[in-house]
């Protein structure tokens, strides 16, 4: 099945472009990025800070069974309602350098809209590493299942 989300990552470039068309009016799509309670719901994270203005900052923290598993923060460089958000993104407790994100919101019809997210990385290697993380995680999960099967068979 074709995904509604498109990833564009050219070889040897330091960027990823993610585009997605939503069956939502532009205002609702933008609201999902603007309102802390809504961000928390769809991102499945705790929104500790979200200052929607130039030079504002944001911080998200995701916990699993009481333990923080993911935390990220950044600075908002540009905030134009229903048009664009430019911000930095940095994972905490990680050696990953800061990323620069350009989010552009566009209305396609009264009931549909599009988001274009351009992420710029410090190097091609870091870009590739981030792209491959879910792939590697998938492989590891497949391997864990394989281990479980092997353990069961050996009993």
């Amino acid at each position: 099945m074709e995904l509604k989300t498109k990833i564009h990552a050219e070889d040897n470039k330091q960027e990823i472009i993610i585009t997605r068309t939503f069956d939502l009016p532009l205002e609702l799509l933008f609201k999902a990025y603007e309102e802390p309670e809504l961000v928390a719901q769809w991102m499945g994270t705790k929104v500790l800070q979200l200052e929607n203005r130039q030079h504002g900052s944001w911080r998200y923290e995701t916990a699993h069974e009481g333990k923080v598993v993911f935390a990220a923060n950044g600075v908002i460089l540009e905030f134009v309602p229903d048009q664009r958000i430019t911000r930095t993104f940095q994972m905490e407790n990680s050696n990953f350098p800061v990323q620069l994100e350009f989010l552009e919101f566009e209305s396609l019809s009264p009931a549909s809209s599009r988001l274009r997210m351009q992420i710029i990385f410090k190097s091609v290697a870091f870009r590739d590493q981030l792209l491959q993380m879910p792939f590697a995680a998938g492989l590891s999960m497949a391997h864990d299942r394989l281990q479980d099967v092997l353990t069961l068979n050996n009993k």
Binding site: L3, K4, T5, K6, I7, A9, I18, R20, F22, D23, L24, L28, L29, K31, A32, L38, Q41, W42, M43, G44, L115, L131, Q132, M133, P134, F135, A137, G138
Partner: peptide, 22 residues
């Protein structure tokens, strides 16, 4: 397709956004 799981991750996330906003 190395990118497929990355695309799936974002697609799932955006599907949730769409459902919540609807």
């Amino acid at each position: 397709d190395f990118i497929a799981p990355f695309a799936k991750l974002w697609d799932d996330r955006f599907n949730t956004l769409e459902a919540i906003m609807n």
